[in-house]
Amino acid sequence: MCALTRGAVLRARKKLSMCAHPMSSIRHGSACAPLLYFRYIGISIRSQMQYRASFLMMSLGMFLITATEILSIWALFSRFGSLRGWRLEEVALFYGIVSTAFAIAESVSRGFDLFDRMIRTGGFDRLLLRPRSTAFQVAAGDWQLMRVGRLAVGLIALTWAGLKLDVRWFPGGLALAALAILCAACLFYGLFVLQATLTFWTVEGIEIANCVTYGGNETGQYPLSIYRPWFRKFFVFVVPLACVTYFPVLAILGREDAALGTPRWFHAAAPLIGIAFLLVSLRVWQFGVRHYRSTGS
């Protein structure tokens, strides 16, 4: 037995000295959280790029599906002319902001989207055994690139709206649009986190969250004022989608809020509620983790 191990050790030493692993020595020292996060992302992206043809097709498919969405809006406008006082260019702005934000959130929060699978296979225990925050590990676990299809359509819609609309873009308009996209992405991210948190209590029926994630995406494509009052209130007070899309766009267009009567200063500040929403949902996640740890799997 000793001879075997000794021989193995000698052989291993020889092999290691012959090819000092380049990856191992270079990629080291990224122990702090942001660098570790990007390390994870790099791994995820690399493994997706391994199947390049598949990735291209998925992205193309996503692009086409999203394109038909916006084409149908165009078709309806060409038939009806306007939507409760809103023009196609203005609706394109709404569409662009929401789609871009949702595409970003979809790709970046994929770990939470797939979390129910992890709970079902018992993989969450392994995350608890590592000396890092669970939310961090889930967030870093997966990034999905194919959402770039939806992102492209969103950006196209934004650009077209930007060119067609008579708005002062520099610097206020662009800054506000960027802020709206960022905060809307945070809001959607928070919704995906909440959806994942549900799985700590049940793995069935969590698709109800689709109402506010994909449903929120669909709702936000049109100005809030066209919807019924109770629906508007839901998307202002319960899921503050209006704060990250409707109000900032009102500010960009310089319009008054005829539907809800909110003051102008609020329109520009409202997006920050999206960030607050994300922080709150991360707290709820912690609560869910605590529940999981009390009741087992």
Binding site: L16, S24, H28, S30, L36, R39, P131
Partner: peptide, 24 residues
Amino acid sequence: DLLADIYRVPAALYRRNRDELVGL
């Protein structure tokens, strides 16, 4: 490598442990 970063293992200690374990 990824685990070494997750566990914040100092580089020298990681290399020593890794080489030893690979050998053993």
